[in-house]
């Protein structure tokens, strides 16, 4: 490669980097809604996330949420920093190929109490996107289902269930809880219709002959 070619390639590389940073800065223009003291700190966190190849949009949104809710600058920075850490942990568990939506859902699942090992198991168990299984996992925990039970249920379904099936599963659990079933029991009953209908009798609770 000649010196001229090298210079041209370096110039092009520099231009691309500058353009990339300019684009990123342009996207961050939404951060104008933050106060002047908070904005640079959040921008630095975004840069760090970008360097770590983490999605920055969830971080921007978390900062904007704080701004809309008139939270203090410290609270906003703490929230963004925590989310960035959660996204990093989710990426560690789900792998570098995880989509931003998966990472966001994974971060929520970790925050709910799921372990990184669970996320890794889900990645191995399911080829399809994990956004919905992770959302269901975190949602079950939020609904009162013990973490262990929720994890077992979602892992059991992840390999074979479509997103729509998981949605229906979640609805069944939600409905049963609303109608009075203990969360873990509702999860157990809904994890597969087979559990209700083909088990050898221990779950029979319907009325029968005297």
């Amino acid at each position: 490669m000649t010196p001229n070619c090298t210079r041209a390639a370096l110039s092009l590389l520099v231009a691309m980097v500058v353009a990339g940073r300019a684009t990123a800065q342009q996207a961050d223009a939404r951060l104008e809604r933050l106060d002047a003291a908070t904005r640079p700190t959040v921008a630095a966190l975004l840069d760090s996330a970008r360097t770590a190849i983490l999605p920055t949009e969830p971080l921007v949104q978390r900062a904007l949420e704080g701004a809309t809710k008139r939270a203090s600058g410290d609270a906003i920075v703490t929230a963004v920093r925590r989310l960035a850490a959660d996204l990093g942990h989710a990426r560690d568990a789900l792998g570098s190929t995880a989509s931003p939506a998966e990472l966001t859902a994974g971060a929520a699942a970790l925050r709910a109490g799921a372990s990184q090992a669970t996320l890794a198991q889900l990645r191995h168990a399911r080829r399809e996107p994990l956004t919905v299984p992770l959302a269901v996992l975190a949602d079950l925990v939020a609904s009162g289902v013990p973490v262990d039970s929720a994890t077992a249920a979602v892992l059991g379904l992840a390999a074979r269930a479509r997103d729509a099936d998981l949605v229906e599963f979640r609805r069944a659990v939600e409905r049963d809880i609303a109608l009075g079933a203990p969360p873990a029991a509702a999860t157990a009953a809904a994890v597969t219709a087979a559990d209700v209908w083909v088990n050898a009798g221990a779950r029979q609770q319907r009325p029968g002959p005297p």
Partner: peptide, 12 residues
Amino acid sequence: ASLAAATSVFGV
């Protein structure tokens, strides 16, 4: 769907 995305459910 509701997610335990905040500290209220962390550690449950």
